[in-house]
Nucleic acid binder design. Structure first.
Lengths: 185, 185
DNA sequence: TATGAATTTCAGAAAATACTGAAATCCGTG
DNA sequence: CACGGATTTCAGTATTTTCTGAAATTCATA
């Protein structure tokens, strides 16, 4: 209980840094730690928030796709839980943050490049450069997002796979302090 | 001008999603688009914020390491600019966000694993699982952060490098819709 | 289609955050 | 070390965001 409480309080505090509020953070944390799905009343009781606040919070978590509805037999009330698989959670988180924090800016930059011919040369160049970099990073992300969870996990656990990755591009990139054997290409 | 203004307003609006406020977002955008370093007075005048607000904003941007001081000859006032290299900016952004949004949670999880033996089995398992995944992702990030900008950029531009990466682990992971030739291993 | 439990909506209260102007501090120069 | 421009601090105000309770709505069941 002590541990669970601290975890929940921590998520509440971090919430604002993560772009959700205290309530939403705590609700998420509570669901994350509970094996069985919980209904809104359970959450109110446990966290001491008003019913309406919990309702809002659950709505937001569903919009983030971080919490899903679950049917519990013999109970009319809706229940909620977080996905079991952590990798799924991480993927969702990244996807949603990209959608909220990056996509709108990419659209705006494209729009400004097309419509706006009135910026200074320097400003135009910077906007284009930024748009290009965001596109490249987005493409990389989309490649990554296609790799199945199982294999991504293997990759993650394998040691210094990264040096191999870079080797595959035709160059050798020594890792600082590493002792990789160099492969001539 | 029209274009610059729209860019600045957009950064102001997005600021709250990015964990900075409107003022800070606008100051950053203005500096990002200006070739010459600007002093606080320039910024006040251009954006219409109070002197003290601009001072706070610049302080915050420096704490994020997104803006640096620059000396301008024959002017006693401090001037500021964003780094020229976009890749540097992206690295800094990721580094700082990791520091603010992930590191504190990783510490807390470790602490809870050590101190807290009172959680339910399920909760303990989830905390451990989460701590492990964050560590793995953090390690991956640290590997990536060591690759020099020049080479990272090459990598980013190269096409479907990712399938090669995964091949290097000893498996072939077909990209959805891709037409990579499979390499037997 | 009337009932009532469950859920959502929403206007206003409470809390948190951002912003300002005035005063204090800093700092190079005479 | 006094002057004066540049910068920061800070207490109070304004704005935004979060939270609540009451009312409205939804929806399965009789």
């Amino acid at each position: 209980m002590r541990t669970e409480n601290e975890f929940i309080l921590h998520f509440g505090e971090m919430g604002s840094r993560w772009g959700i509020n205290r309530t939403v953070g705590q609700i998420y944390a509570l669901l994350f730690l509970s094996e069985a799905p919980l209904c809104a009343d359970d959450i109110c009781e446990r966290l001491g928030f008003s019913r309406s606040n919990v309702s809002m919070g659950l709505k937001e978590l569903q919009a983030w796709r971080l919490v899903r509805r679950r049917d519990v037999p013999d109970d009319r009330r809706e229940h909620f839980s977080t996905p079991d698989d952590l990798m799924t959670i991480v993927r969702t988180l990244i996807e949603e943050r990209k959608r909220r924090e990056i996509d709108p800016t990419l659209s705006k930059l494209r729009e400004l490049e097309i419509e706006g011919q009135d910026a200074s040369d320097y400003a135009s160049a910077r906007i284009t450069e930024l748009r290009q970099l965001i596109e490249e990073l987005t493409n990389l992300y989309e490649d990554l997002a296609r790799i199945e969870t199982e294999k991504l996990r293997t990759l993650l656990k394998a040691g210094s796979t990264l040096s191999k990755l870079v080797t595959a591009t035709g160059r050798v990139i020594p890792l600082r302090g590493g002792s990789d054997t160099k492969e001539a290409n």
